[in-house]
Simulated scan of single mutants.
Amino acid sequence: MESVQFSAGAPPTVGRHAVITRVDDLRWRAAADGVAIGHGEAARRPDGRVFLSIDTWHGPVFDRLVTAMLADLPSPLYTLVDEADHDLTARWARAGLTVRRREREYLLATDPTATGLDTTAAPRGVTILGLGAAREPALREVYEAVRAEVDARAGWDSMPAEVLVRPHGAPLDPSKYVVAEAADRYVGLVRVVARRRHARIGLVAVREDRRGRGIARAMLAEVLGALHRGGVETASAEVDERNTAASALFEGIGAQHVSSAVEMMRGA
């Protein structure tokens, strides 16, 4: 979400007198002597939340842009920041945003011999359906059921950035899902998006009454095996750090914790 960098060699006064212009409803521009030296953007997600991003080389320009954006937009407002970027986190904090949650990014191999999933089988009474094999109405039903369970607990907006709220009843693309079926209904699903030699796992979920039986591991074995056979060598996943079960699942198949991001928020 954030691509901002600050110029170490620039004088601290650079940008303090920049002219900030609101280009349209969701974009801002900082200019000095007619030259653009920074940009701000507000992105509205399907769940209605607005995430801010600022791109500039100069700290004072960042401060002026964020002040203008916060003055122009109603709360609540959000941003994602690399947890290792202490300067950027501090600047958002000085602007009034506070840390709401932390998200871990994991990187894992798809090779079953590397993950240890080559001998993983589905639990008794459970059938794993590969990418594209799910029936769309049943897929939509388990998706909505999982969403309701998450909403009743942590809230769907605690899910990683890759997981978007869909309008109720909106169709899903079975080619992006592996599902687990038991007793004539779907009891779990994994969503994956593959791009060339890398893939992102955006959702791993099992119905509450079926958890703790190895269903999630079996679905991951199917997903990662299919990716490996298709020439995709690695996959990544984002996990809320409070979701210790998900972290244990990925770490248990050799996933590496490569980075962390903080979600910051202003307003209730």
Rank of each mutant, 00 (worst) to 15 (best):
R200E: 05
H58T: 03
T234A: 01
A114G: 03
G125W: 11
V232I: 14
L77W: 11
E162P: 01
E141A: 15
S236C: 05
R153A: 13
P160G: 00
E83C: 03
G212C: 06
D184F: 13
G9Y: 10
V99Q: 07
V126G: 07
A43N: 05
A268S: 05
R217E: 00
A95N: 02
G155V: 07
G254H: 08
P76M: 10
Y106C: 00
D82Q: 12
A268L: 03
R195K: 05
I215L: 03
G132A: 09
L65Q: 01
T120L: 08
A205Q: 00
R135M: 04
A133K: 06
R242I: 09
A218I: 09
A43P: 02
P171K: 07
V66W: 02
D151Q: 14
M219L: 14
V81I: 15
W57N: 02
S3D: 14
P74F: 06
A71Y: 13
E241L: 13
D82L: 12
A194P: 07
L224E: 06
A109S: 15
L80S: 11
V223M: 14
V66F: 13
V187R: 04
A154Q: 12
S7E: 01
S7F: 08
R29I: 13
E144I: 06
I201L: 15
E263Q: 08
M159K: 08
F250W: 04
A90K: 09
H168L: 15
G132W: 06
V66Q: 00
R29F: 10
S53I: 01
L107G: 01
Q256R: 13
A216S: 00
G15R: 08
G212H: 04
V165R: 02
A122V: 10
V19G: 00
V4G: 12
G212R: 09
L129A: 09
E222R: 15
G34H: 09
R266S: 10
D87W: 10
S158A: 14
R45V: 03
G40Y: 05
G231K: 10
G38W: 03
A93D: 03
E149L: 06
V187C: 08
A109R: 13
A36I: 14
D157K: 07
L227P: 05
R229A: 15
E136R: 12
H86V: 14
I54N: 01
A109I: 08
G169C: 08
A255P: 08
P160D: 00
R101G: 09
L129S: 10
A148D: 10
D209H: 10
D118P: 02
P11F: 11
Y177F: 15
A221E: 06
H257I: 05
E141Y: 05
E141C: 08
V204M: 00
R124Y: 06
T113W: 08
